Amino acid sequence: MNSELRELIAELRTDLEAGQPATLAWAQINEGAPADKIPADLPPPVRALLETADGLLAGAFDLPAMAGLDDIQYYIEQMPGFTGVADEPAEWLVFGTLSDEPLLVRRDTGAVWYFPAETTDEWFARELFLDIAPDLDSFLAYYVFGAGYGEIGFDDDKWWGFLDEHDLTTHGEENEDRETA
């Protein structure tokens, strides 16, 4: 994980903690886990995230702590056949959810995949399964902690307001630098 993203997460964690208990209902960023306690079989980007934040709730995103990762792997078995995920489960890791829908990372490429909510169908009945970001850092910087959060349909909740207060909801030059770093 790049240093700018680590610093941003630490800054946002501090601001959220200052607003507790009111912020706990819609956002929480836990302290990182010790590196030696994180399973070695997790993809390096997921390990880096857990070292920075051992679980986080950010509006519609729920990226569980290390202890909860095993509890969400059941999504792999429920994946629609056209995705190919169930055919090669060892290649995928469910690292969190977006509105109770799975977010997956490919272990070989690091790309983040999801089911876009273009219809009202349940995620497992949708016909689209797309890579939303080439890597976890890009995904976090843009969709969890940036303007992309509004693009995926959540531009009117408390997390969006919090991001806006921190000038993270526009495609300004500073945000673009964070996304590409």
Rank of each mutant, 00 (worst) to 15 (best):
E7C: 06
V144F: 02
E173P: 04
A40H: 10
P80E: 11
A53Y: 11
E51P: 01
R178M: 15
P80W: 08
A141Y: 05
E77C: 08
S99Q: 13
F154R: 05
M79Y: 06
G84N: 10
F95V: 04
P102A: 10
L5E: 00
G96A: 05
R106Q: 15
G148F: 07
A53E: 05
T109S: 15
T52H: 06
G110T: 06
E173G: 09
L98R: 10
E174V: 13
L12Q: 11
V105P: 07
L56E: 02
P21W: 06
A147P: 01
L16K: 01
A65K: 07
A48N: 13
D62A: 07
D155P: 00
D87A: 14
P89Y: 08
V112F: 09
W92M: 02
A133Q: 04
G84I: 06
D167Q: 12
P43L: 10
N30K: 12
L163P: 06
E174Y: 08
L130D: 15
M1L: 14
S99L: 15
F115H: 04
A133K: 01
H171N: 14
A86I: 15
I29T: 03
I72E: 02
A65Q: 06
Y149S: 08
D54Y: 00
Y114D: 11
Q78P: 09
T180K: 12
G148A: 08
I9G: 01
G84V: 08
E122R: 13
W92K: 03
F115K: 05
P39H: 03
P21Y: 05
G150K: 07
S99K: 10
P64C: 00
E122D: 14
P45R: 01
R13E: 02
D15Y: 02
K158A: 15
A33D: 05
L93K: 03
M1Y: 10
Q78R: 15
Y149C: 07
G84T: 08
Q28H: 14
G59P: 01
R107G: 03
L168C: 09
A86G: 14
T52G: 04
G32Q: 01
H171C: 10
Y75Q: 05
L163A: 05
M66T: 12
D87K: 14
A25S: 15
L140K: 07
A133E: 02
Q28A: 15
S138E: 11
D36H: 10
F139E: 01
H171S: 13
E88S: 12
V144C: 02
R47D: 03
D137Q: 12
M1V: 10
L63G: 00
L98F: 13
A48K: 14
V112I: 15
L93C: 05
D70V: 09
A117S: 13
R126T: 10
L136K: 03
K158W: 13
L50Q: 01
K37Y: 11
E179M: 14
V94Q: 01
D164F: 10
D164V: 09
V112N: 03
L104I: 11
W92Y: 12
R13N: 02
E174I: 13
L168H: 01
D155Q: 12
E165L: 13
E127K: 13
